[in-house]
Design a protein around this nucleic acid. Structure first.
Lengths: 232, 232
DNA sequence: AAGTGGTCTAGACCACCTT
DNA sequence: AGGTGGTCTAGACCACTTT
């Protein structure tokens, strides 16, 4: 049996309650013997299940079925134009504004909200752009970029292509944070998205850093009704 | 070098643009020789990077650094009471209503929106409950449950504990879908959450099925300002 | 102290895909 | 046709954690 087979069988037993919530699973050696495969194969299968949150593993203590599984939603966050294209729409991009500005304290706080973060520059690039699908507003991108992290960045960078694509192509990045929330559409946002003022919008906030250096903070306000989904 | 070391070094080279976007990475055998480890170790490291979306792997074509990486946000969706407790608040649960009802067509459509799905029962349990943290509204749970999938379910099941906990304890489940969106608080919801009517709320919709059988559809409306976040 | 998962190795075969 | 990643094996040693 290959590791997918082992995974499927163990998952079946979990769902059939042969391995009930709170209960233990046989150790790797026993399962390997039962399935007639190497322990490494069982290890691979159980590692995948643990990664998916279906089992919990601890050395010596063994492997258990969690009573209250922490579900994980793995959301794919594609490049916006690819996201639009994947829905069968023609992607469009319109730059609304791009300027060096002093960020408000809240923005700066979020951007530098990392252990051991370097301070960002005093003035940051503030880029606002609208992404459209077949001409209709899709998502409003409100982005702050730390010029210290991306030398060679200028207004011309945002004219034709998304700042995100420029950054991906020209800047290194490592890690950051993604958060989902809901906001009431401000008047200016509502105008650009073509929706009613105060309409509820799904907002995705993403920070990116390169080592200790803040690179960019982007807030995406999706047109009303938009959902971000995944299987699990 | 162990697999974490290989992963770290390859990631460093990607971020240092030694392996530029769109470029190729040496094959596993070469990397193994360079790092002085077994190919399986390199394979493990590269598999993890591929899982994180940082590289793309194809047989024969080799391994490449994607030009437009599809970021993955791995969101942990814990049991609500654990979520509340993790924030240092005292979890509370108040059942608002529980009854067998005919679902509206939209609800039924979402519940059965699976390839090869069985139809759900004509009447479904409709459970509305409010979760609180230190007495303050935290999230409103609006749930539909297919009685065919959960024999032995009754009003007493929801009195003291969350329907979600009951289901986890008594029903098998396999897979489903999670979606994030934003909604305007209906009057009844606003009253329960103690917010203004039409306030923007983050809403999480989750469907669960057991094989081809729809089990439950739950809509969580979070109190205003709530965010769901993750590192990546 | 002992059991369990975590990882590494060296080799092997295979499936897949590009050329 | 041939190169590349995907996987399996049998064995080994180690790290961690509970007893």
């Amino acid at each position: 049996m290959d590791w997918r087979g082992v995974r499927a069988e163990v998952l079946r037993r979990i769902e059939a309650r042969d391995y009930p919530p709170g209960g233990s699973i046989p150790n790797e050696a026993d399962l390997a013997a039962e399935f007639g495969c190497a322990r490494a194969t069982v290890n691979r299968a159980l590692r995948e299940l643990a990664y998916a949150g279906r089992i919990e593993r601890r050395r010596k203590a063994g492997t258990r079925v969690p009573i209250a599984p922490v579900r994980q939603a793995i959301l794919a966050i594609p490049i916006i134009r690819a996201d639009i294209a994947a829905r069968g729409l023609e992607p469009g991009y319109r730059l609304i504004s791009a300027a060096l500005e002093r960020p408000d304290p809240a923005t700066r706080a979020i951007l530098e909200d990392q252990p051991g973060a370097e301070p960002a520059a005093a003035r940051l690039w503030h880029v606002v752009a609208l992404h459209t699908g077949d001409g209709a507003p899709f998502v409003l991108e409100d982005r702050w970029i730390n010029p210290d992290a991306v030398p060679g960045l200028g207004p011309e960078s945002f004219a034709a292509i998304s700042a995100n694509e420029w950054l991906v192509a020209h800047a290194g990045f490592s890690s950051g944070r993604i958060a989902f929330g809901a906001v009431s559409a401000p008047a200016a946002t509502a105008r650009l998205l073509g929706c009613a003022p105060a309409a509820p919008l799904l907002r995705l906030t993403r920070t990116t850093r390169s080592g200790p250096r803040p690179v960019t903070l982007v807030r995406l306000s999706y047109a009303p009704g938009h959902e971000i989904a995944t299987g699990f």
